[in-house]
Nucleic acid binder design. Structure first.
Lengths: 226, 226
DNA sequence: CGGACTACGGTACCGATGTACAGCGTCGGA
DNA sequence: TCCGACGCTGTACATCGGTACCGTAGTCCG
């Protein structure tokens, strides 16, 4: 556990006191009132810091859902307990970890629009995407691959490569629009097949096709629920 | 203290459980969801009755300010909820990273079989599973949730909790078998609904139901392709 | 000197939540 | 048979409360 500032500790103490005395956690504004902070944002900054440092958790968009990760031991004067964070359990396994940038959205948006949000990255275990080379992420818009179990709002992880096998789920460039489809090379054209009975395939004559139009192959799909 | 009706006692029990398990009281709608009451007014009637009979108090026009007048002695069958904040099996490397143990498979296997492969863990970004407490992973077997986009072989990430909202995708214990279904509390039974037109729901009489039968709520789904 | 982290003020927005009002049916007294 | 308690459905509404975005300042560090 990281160390807290005095102010952050005061916030934590008040939350703990509220739970003890009233039976439920305070709201942002109650915390602000008690500590003389008039802006909800000022309070929220503290809560974010406390979350980041691992002292509390909360649920999104719900009131009074603060929860102390551990019950804040007694006196506020005692310095936080020796954070037994031995280097042993921070053993590097970075080789197994991969950081994936979420570049944007596909199936509706232009690719360039996509690349405007580069700082949004997620880290996941390599095991989940295979030992490939470059991998990036995209957010799916629309239902065109729903029969393949890829839904609106899902994240897909894409291994960059210029070729694909028949039937692979690929991210392809059609005009200047990126789209997610099944890949079917045919005799004289490329067929990009949606997995949705109500939608028609996109046919591209081989003469118009360049291999650079394949951006990569989808190797993973993630969906948040709840 | 006046006597309570069965329904009123059920409300009181749920409030108590929420405080114990989550650390804060539920909202009217959460109570309604759990007990299969669709109208906030229906719930409010119960709360007024409980206030009138002296079992709880609340503050006007504030959310989650329910407070039990006395802590509802365990009485019947409710086993004390497991000491929630262990987090032993969810080791945090970085502030934003979470390590998730894959405990086994559901929908076909027994839970014990499940826990036999404990060292298999994956790490993913917290962003992908929310800021919840304990999270574990399972591998899905079968097609029973296919219309919810959960396919055979998918990984699901599950936030441990003993209660759920109407419609949530939950991991539930039926007999000694773990299963993944939609959760629908009805008037006198719990309905565990597959997302597959060819399959029938599992109905469990409320009298046979214990809250410990919910192992958690599915917060994420991952599928490897290729 | 620029860039972090901390610590606020201020405000707009919108989802989350409690409250109120208008019903309906059942059941057990009086 | 009328009445009150119980147990709901359904809807409208106002406030509560979290989140987001925009600024300002001080400190500390490289």
């Amino acid at each position: 556990m990281q160390k807290l500032t005095e102010r952050q500790r005061a916030v934590l103490t008040f939350i703990s006191a509220s739970i003890d005395e009233r039976g439920f956690p305070p709201t942002l504004r109650e915390i602000g009132n008690h500590l003389g902070i008039r802006s909800t944002n000022g309070v929220n900054d503290h809560l974010r810091a406390l979350e980041r440092k691992g002292y509390l958790t909360r649920e999104d968009m719900k009131s009074r859902t603060l929860r102390l990760v551990r019950p804040l031991d007694g006196s506020s004067s005692t310095p936080p307990p020796p954070p037994v964070e031995s280097a042993d359990d921070v053993v590097e396994r970075d080789d197994d970890l991969i950081e994936i940038p979420i570049l944007g959205r596909v199936a509706a948006g232009l690719l360039h629009e996509a690349i405007e949000a580069p700082e949004d990255t997620v880290r996941i275990d390599r095991m989940l995407v295979g030992r490939g080379a470059d991998v990036f992420g995209l957010r799916i818009v629309g239902e065109s691959m729903i029969d393949a179990g890829i839904h609106d709002g899902d994240y897909v992880f894409v291994r960059k490569q210029l070729s694909a096998n028949r039937g692979d789920v690929v991210i392809a460039l059609v005009g200047d629009e990126a789209t997610c489809k099944h890949f079917f090379p045919e005799r004289d054209h490329i067929r990009l097949q949606p997995a949705n009975a109500t939608m028609e395939p996109i046919l591209i004559p081989k003469s118009d096709w360049r291999s650079t139009q394949i951006l990569g192959v989808v190797v993973g799909v993630y969906r948040r629920l709840h």
